[in-house]
Amino acid sequence: MFFPISGVHINPFVLGILGLVIGILGGFFGVGGSFLSGPSLFSLGMPYNFVVGTDLIHIVGKSIVAARQHRILGHIDLKLAAVMVIGTLVGSEGGVDAIEALKRLGEVNLVVGLTAISVFTVISIFGAWESWQALRKSRAITDDPDGPKTDVLVFDRLAKFFQGLALGPRISLKQSGILKISIWSIVLVSFVGGFFSGFLGGGAGYIRMPAMVYLLGIPTHIAVGTDLFEIIISAGYGSIRHAMNGNVDILVALVMHTGAAVGAQLGARLTQYFSGPWIRLAFAPLPLLGAIMVAIALITGHHS
């Protein structure tokens, strides 16, 4: 089927199924899913600038659905989300400007592709190592399979550092179980996430969700829900910026979202059956899959 805005031919059923898969993953892991949807749209023939903008606006819709489910489950820290929005918006602006600069240089596909590969690979390897260690540690703590789902964090040195930063103002995050943390720690983490959101597309949950767990010490379930809520704001802002620059094909996004909306609800409901380390371990291979897809598309120049 021909989509006149981006000028590409894509089977709408493929888009719907892609949306469903990404929706389930997004609802379960608290990420926009751009590490998969971005490379997938790229390999379906969309130019990368349209991939970034279209993916962002589809993520807004999907995150609204998933965040509502997580809110019902009590997985959203609104205070944390409100502070994170500030850093995310500033970072997102920088990321979008970087994309526009690369478009003028004509190097957008190569630079964005190589950056995506590097970032996705590092997150995957680190996440797999940490969550595996955390699972071993949590088994040592309790051997009761029907016992409470524990959220063990093996690599907590950075979280302790950021929580101990004596830079005022400091706030308490009761929902996340953190007594005091500097606002600047939260803003810094969200700024980095925002930059990648504007630069690589998506809500950058693949960076922000692990960053919230490892750098701020937020429990995994709360990080998942809060990240989705925050993605609505950050991806919404990025979508407007990209749409103004002509990088959004809303028809493709709407079709993808029909699958993503139901997937997001299913994924969000499933989180209550898994502990934090299991969610993080299951998440680890996904960015690597995205990196492989981008690499294949870059090497072969494949636009099917």
Binding site: I250, L254, H257
Partner: peptide, 12 residues
């Protein structure tokens, strides 16, 4: 675009 996406999300 924004209105369509938000409306669709709430509706679905």
């Amino acid at each position: 675009s924004i209105l369509l996406m938000v409306g669709q999300a709430i509706g679905l």
